[in-house]
Design a protein around this nucleic acid. Structure first.
Lengths: 133, 133
DNA sequence: TGTGTTGTACTAACACAATAGTACAAGATG
DNA sequence: CATCTTGTACTATTGTGTTAGTACAACACA
């Protein structure tokens, strides 16, 4: 499994791990049921403390991305399962509520928010595919 | 001007001030051109340090909600001005980009995000108007 | 031009989040 | 049952964000 840590980056190490694993699961590079490296291994590879990896795994479990089987390792959750989907939706709704609260504070109408959402989606998708094929 | 600070609340004092002033501007309770209390006054009223209020005002200026005229006080920006609108839109776009990035990580389609946005908007608006008339 | 009021700048104290160090608990495996 | 490997728990250290203390700079206004 490929993880890259940037010390300069203001983003906490454990979050960099979380994000990259999330991304790899979403993109299909990590598949359901696949085992993640043990905490100690990954920590050694990245030359960081085991506890930092442990924290990342804990967050990933909370987010429903992985499951831990106490002494038998950490595995990628099947994202297609209804339970996993429910969990992801719950998180998405939190974000959406935040966005709505903020746009209301800034006196934006729902229509405008949705319009911008479409615009940005198109733009981001375009600039996204350029490098990766 | 009415501001209420909760010490227990995990939210930093300066952010509580920012949020409440933003809200009062959005709701029309603070009108364009209206002068905010001087930093020292508000600090004394809330029994906090002047610097904390100064920081709140700085953030509000950054967000385009108020304008500071060096030694002449702090005033509510005219939100209807094109410049102010542009500024608010810039901030909204940042939030939207974050939401899109996250929903992509969680493998949600744009349609689903927009659908939930509509649903949550309806729900939040309903529970919102109940108390305020 | 002197005085008062405005926001600013710099530093310190404190709290908390992030990370590391180390010891522990529990199940797999022979 | 002994041992290895898994994740966990607790504590210490370090860095950063929040707040406070205090001194400063700039403009209004008499």
């Amino acid at each position: 499994m490929q993880i890259h840590i940037r010390a300069q980056d203001g983003v906490p190490i454990y979050l960099q791990i979380v994000n990259q694993i999330k991304y790899q699961v979403a993109s299909g590079r990590l598949k359901p049921g696949q085992e993640l490296p043990p905490i100690r291994n990954l920590a050694e590879t990245l030359v960081i403390n085991s506890n930092t990896v442990a924290r990342a795994y804990r967050e990933l479990e909370q987010a429903g991305v992985v499951e831990k089987r106490r002494t038998a390792g950490t595995y990628v959750t099947d994202q297609r399962s209804p339970l996993a989907r429910r969990e992801r939706q719950r998180i998405l709704i939190e974000r959406i509520d935040q966005l709505l609260a903020e746009s209301r504070q800034m006196s934006f109408e729902l229509d405008e928010v949705i319009r911008l959402l479409n615009v940005r989606h198109t733009i981001l998708q375009k600039s996204d595919g350029e490098g990766t094929g």
